[in-house]
């Protein structure tokens, strides 16, 4: 069956080779991950959550019983009101039976309750917000890719433009952390050491737990 899977070309194999090596994590990230794992274990042993959560059949049975009781109560209230109105109408106008019956049906409606008001507006609104949320990262990503490509070819001036635009349009965007790290790199690359240092300090105070922090410290002039 393995014969049916064509082997990768030597060129692709060579490219994949580069990704085979697993780079070691920085000591900061490693320490953070282990500390979090230890904390998870410590927190987990205190409350001892496992033996709760009733069996599903119990939940179903409870739900069914509740439904039956609610239905019976609703029917009883409706019947009671209907009988009362019937009596009242008989004293005022004894002849037609239809009228009290029809009016009697009315109060039953609110008792039968659930029918929640449909909210047609909420659906498009949430959909729209979802759509804009989808659109934003694409645009964020595009800008950051531009900046990153410029930094990669050491055109630091060109990198600052998409960085500035990203900062203007997505100040607290999902990629703000990457943007600010790139800013430090670009400023340092341009030899604007004071600004790079300031940007690095701002980065550190804004993202104190960032995985990029050690790298930012390394490039920022005072980090050495």
């Amino acid at each position: 069956m393995i014969d049916k899977v064509p082997p990768v070309t030597p060129e692709v194999r060579a490219i994949l080779e580069r990704e085979r090596v697993i780079p070691p994590l920085s000591p900061t990230v490693r320490a953070r991950a282990l500390a979090a794992a230890r904390a998870t274990l410590a927190n987990r042993t205190v409350p001892a959550p496992p033996p709760r959560a009733p069996a599903p059949w119990i939940r179903w049975a409870a739900a069914a019983a509740l439904t039956v009781v609610a239905g019976a109560a609703t029917a009883a209230v409706a019947y009671h009101r209907h009988v009362q109105q019937l009596r009242a109408s008989q004293t005022v106008a004894p002849s037609p039976m239809l009228e009290p019956a029809s009016t009697g049906a009315r109060p039953a409606a609110p008792v039968a309750l659930p029918a929640p008001a449909p909210e047609p507006t909420t659906v498009p609104a949430s959909e729209e917000s979802r759509r804009t949320k989808v659109a934003v990262p694409q645009e964020e990503l595009r800008l950051l890719r531009l900046a990153r490509a410029a930094v990669a070819r050491e055109d630091f001036n060109a990198a600052l433009r998409p960085i500035a635009e990203h900062a203007r349009r997505f100040r607290d965007g999902r990629l703000a952390e990457e943007r600010e790290a790139l800013r430090v790199k670009a400023l340092a690359g341009l030899g604007r050491t004071d600004e790079a240092r300031r940007a690095a300090t701002a980065f550190e105070s804004r993202f104190p737990r960032s995985v990029l922090l050690p790298a930012v410290r390394r490039i920022s002039p005072h980090g050495e």
Binding site: V29, L141, L144, L212
Partner: peptide
Amino acid sequence: RREVAFGVVEPDDLGPNP
């Protein structure tokens, strides 16, 4: 359900040996 930052910057990207 959306594309977000992927490989935009890696910690190693910013290393001192450009």
